[in-house]
């Protein structure tokens, strides 16, 4: 498996685990009502710091074990894979934005909107990484 595939797997697993935990905690442990937005913010800060730390450490270790690959610039096939992944991630974002617009008119609360937007971003990111991993595997 190449360095870029490994880093994509790390990103996928870390994001799925961190935000899986975030949404689980949000659903089971946080208070309902207006206070939820501050609690969501606190939990989100913890998750964000956790993601940055976990990815920095794990990817740093992988890069140290294959420094040549880690420092190599992406070639044309890898750039094409990157663009296609980003292209497919655009669809969940568009659908999610329209969903949120609908939720605003339907009178949903601020915390619900915040977490729906967050879920859309997480979903788009997972689609991007998933498509890129599929293309790396298919063409590799």
């Amino acid at each position: 498996m190449t360095f870029r595939e490994k880093t994509h797997w790390v990103s996928l697993v870390v994001i799925a685990t961190a935000f899986g935990w975030y949404f689980f905690r949000l659903h089971t442990a946080l208070p309902r009502g207006p206070g939820n937005i501050a609690a969501s913010g606190g939990l989100l800060a913890v998750v964000t710091i956790g993601i940055i730390l976990a990815m920095s450490i794990i990817i740093g270790v992988i890069a140290a074990r294959s420094p040549r690959e880690a420092h190599a610039a992406a070639d044309e096939r890898e750039r094409a894979i990157h663009w296609r992944g980003t292209h497919y991630a655009y669809y969940p974002i568009v659908i999610g934005v329209w969903l949120c617009i609908g939720m605003i008119f339907a009178g949903y609360s601020m915390p619900t909107l915040l977490n729906t937007l967050l879920a859309v971003v997480v979903l788009a990111e997972m689609v991007r990484i998933g498509v890129q991993l599929y293309l790396y595997r298919r063409d590799g």
Binding site: T2, A72, D75, E76, R77, E78, Y136, R138, D139, G140
Partner: peptide, 22 residues
Amino acid sequence: VGVTRQTIAAIEQGKYSPSLEV
């Protein structure tokens, strides 16, 4: 050529169409 081993493998196997430059 200035590409990765995986890209050469993909070209060889007909899975990737290289640019004219490559």
